[in-house]
């Protein structure tokens, strides 16, 4: 009986279906904020204030014809969209939503596991680009790899620095520690800024959307994907955005800890704040060149993350 309830939780709430629907709402929020900052209305007609627009986009893509280029590596080309959606959905299970101390699944060290899943996401993108056998995809894939190697280091260091202070490697442990003490954004502000910028780089959002720069690379690594495969890719980007903002909220803003409201509402509130910050950055800045992004990550963000670690252990 326990197992049936557990599996139902994984499928419905707070598992796969809930996370998918919430991620579509996050995409709507992101598009709406971005549009308002540019004096546009954004999605308007589908549902109240256009809230159903992301879902309508997915359904439209699912009903489109699925074209595979004849030179593509068939099996990798078919399997990578499924892998791309699976990885962030798996990561979302480890984020403490209902209780403070543990996610749906959790073990000591799940923070490292979630970081690994986010890295595998970028590796899958490189594989997808390789299997597409297209000029634009290939260049996009190489850029994704360079961006992964650049932003991975500062991201890992700045996400793991709070765990040195709290003495635990589990996300739930970090949230519990912050509910007893101050949130880490007050104690380690440099680390928060570094992690925030690195997540923008890992999510390939403006100003670091170099791997699928529309004006130069058509759609970058996703050029050859169409129909249901593109639907899965788009959905996976939404879920990854949700997982990244929730992970950042858990590690630096105290996750679900807060007065009066239940943990899940606090978590959603805090991750929406991070999402709004990301939308603001997206509307504010223009795209960097790939060498500027790599140089900035290695020569500015990595030393900053290391200095933050040094400050955290010595003070």
């Amino acid at each position: 009986m326990d197992y049936i309830i557990f599996i139902l939780e994984m499928i419905i709430f707070p598992g796969v279906l809930f996370v998918t629907i919430l991620s579509l709402i996050y995409e709507w929020l992101d598009r709406k904020i971005y549009a308002r900052l540019q004096h546009r209305y954004g999605p308007l007609y589908t549902g109240p204030s256009g809230i159903l627009q992301p879902l309508a986009d997915i359904i439209k893509l699912l009903s489109k014809e699925d074209i595979e280029p004849e030179v593509a590596d068939r099996w990798i080309f078919r399997l990578t969209p499924i892998a791309l959606l699976t990885l962030p959905l798996t990561a979302s299970m480890y984020i403490p939503m209902l209780e403070l101390g543990r996610g749906l699944v959790s073990f000591e060290g799940d923070l490292v596991f979630v970081l690994l899943l986010l890295t595998l996401y970028s590796v899958s993108i490189v594989l997808a680009a390789w299997a597409s056998t297209n000029r634009f995809s290939s260049i996009g894939g190489i850029r994704t790899a360079i961006q992964l190697f650049s932003f991975e280091i500062p991201l890992v260091i700045s996400i793991l620095t709070p765990s040195i202070e709290a003495g635990t490697l589990s996300i739930g442990g970090l949230v519990l520690w912050q509910s007893r003490n101050l949130p880490f954004i007050i104690m380690q502000p440099i680390g928060f800024i570094v992690a925030f910028l690195c997540f923008i780089g890992e999510l390939e959002r403006i100003p670091f959307d170099i791997p699928h720069a529309e004006t130069e690379l058509v759609a970058g690594w996703a050029t050859e994907f169409s129909g249901r495969k593109l639907a899965l890719v788009r959905l996976s980007m939404d879920v990854e955005l949700l997982v990244a903002s929730m992970l950042l909220a858990c590690v630096y803003l105290g996750g679900g800890s807060g007065p009066l409201l239940p943990p899940i509402l606090w978590l959603i509130l805090k991750s929406i704040i991070i999402l709004a910050l990301m939308s603001n950055v997206r509307a504010l800045l223009a795209r960097f060149r790939i060498d500027q992004a790599a140089r900035g990550a290695w020569l500015i963000l990595t030393p900053l993350a290391l200095i933050q670690t040094l400050l955290a252990v010595t003070l």
Partner: peptide, 26 residues
């Protein structure tokens, strides 16, 4: 539990892929 946390999203993604194959234009 860890195995389930990987298998259930995998099945979910496959189902969406399969539905896409059924309703897509030919």
């Amino acid at each position: 539990e860890v195995a389930l946390s990987i298998v259930i999203p995998l099945i979910f993604a496959s189902i969406i892929y399969w539905i896409g194959g059924r309703i897509s234009a030919k």
